[in-house]
């Protein structure tokens, strides 16, 4: 029996979440296989085969995987999963969409957003917006699991896995891909950035203008509170929190963030937290290593300028 990882990639590069899943997969001490779904996975298969800790790369190339839909991804997993002990992936939008569907087809439970694994079947996962940690044991023959990226280091390059090509099941007739919009950015990916600069609603229309230069200088990603996203000042996919992205960077700078429990759930495991807020009683200061009570429209440009010196 082995561990099957549902890999995520953009056609060229494996996502960091997949490398983190490879690290988590070592918990079982079983061979680790990486499942690559794509229209043409040749390039990414070469890269995947070099990830340390991977024994085999399974390539499934088919036109429907140009833009993989949950129906087709789940069918591909179900095709293979009965030969595996564990089906694993990072807790990304891609896996959150497809893996529960696969688990139901296999008639097994799924464990989402796991932060610790005690093989063979005991897991710790946050519930209630991370205010509670639940330890649960699965009694199912196949464990379907997504892991929280921030809880596992990324596997390095340095392996030499065999690469095997497999046929895809027939494409689903019930769903089709129409289009996508990508928030183009030359900044690092939010979930894995070393530095994250987050802003609240008070930044208003100046969200990018105020925070952008600081992010640029620190090679950081931008994050936002739900209120800032709801108000249209920041795009949806940079929301940090219980229902957005969970981050744990080396440095998290919260500018004008009040510190609602749902936001804290997404960033309180950051190594160093800086809070800048004009309200000295803001809840964010309770989790901040360094708090500065100041008007962020003055403080952030000053901070950017001071760091450049």
């Amino acid at each position: 029996m082995s561990v099957l990882i549902l890999a995520e990639h953009d056609g060229q590069q494996l996502k960091q979440a997949t490398r983190q899943a490879v690290t988590a997969a070592q918990s079982w001490g079983l061979p680790v296989h990486l499942l690559l779904l794509g229209a043409d996975t040749a390039a990414v298969a070469t890269q995947a085969a070099q990830v340390a800790g991977v024994a085999r790369v399974l390539r499934v190339d088919a036109p429907q995987f140009e833009h993989p839909l949950a129906e087709d991804v789940a069918a591909a997993i179900v095709n293979l999963a009965r030969d595996y002990k564990v089906v694993l992936a990072g807790h990304t939008a891609f896996a959150k969409n497809a893996l529960p569907r696969a688990a139901a087809l296999l008639d097994v439970a799924m464990l989402a957003d796991v932060i610790a694994i005690t093989a063979p079947a005991t897991y710790v996962r946050p519930v209630y917006a991370g205010n509670v940690l639940a330890t649960v044991e699965s009694i199912d023959p196949i464990q379907v699991v997504t892991i929280r990226a921030t809880a596992f280091a990324a596997a390095e390059t340095g392996g030499g896995a065999e690469v095997v090509s497999l046929a895809a099941p027939a494409a689903s007739a019930a769903s089709r891909w129409v289009s996508e919009t990508r928030n183009v950015s030359d900044r690092p990916e939010l979930a894995t950035a070393r530095v994250v600069i987050s802003g609240g609603r008070s930044l208003g229309e100046r969200f990018e203008a105020v925070l952008g230069p600081l992010a640029q200088h620190l090679h950081g990603a931008l994050g936002a509170t739900r209120a800032a996203v709801d108000a249209g000042f920041a795009p949806n996919d940079i929301q940090v929190g219980q229902t957005g992205t969970v981050v744990a960077p080396e440095l998290y700078i919260a500018a004008g963030v009040s510190g609602a429990a749902q936001h804290l759930a997404g960033m309180k495991d950051s190594k160093v937290i800086v809070a800048i807020n004009h309200d000295p009683d803001a809840a964010i200061f309770q989790v901040a290593d360094f708090g500065l009570v100041a008007d962020l429209f003055d403080a952030i440009p000053q901070l950017t300028a001071a760091l450049k010196q």
Binding site: V108, A109, L111, T122, P126, V127, G130, N131, V132, L133, A134, T135, V136, E137, S138, I139, D140, L251, K268, V272, I273, V274, F285, Q286, V287, A288, D289, F290, G291, L292, V293, A294, A299, Q302, L303, A306, L307
Partner: peptide, 30 residues
């Protein structure tokens, strides 16, 4: 249920930090 709950607990509490008085002091701490 397929998952047996063994226990629930609270995540480790984050130690309180310090307030700084100026951007210059913040930069020094960072």
């Amino acid at each position: 249920p397929r998952l047996k709950r063994q226990k629930v607990g609270t995540p480790p509490h984050r130690a309180p930090g310090v307030k700084v008085n100026s951007v210059a002091e913040l930069v020094q701490k960072l």
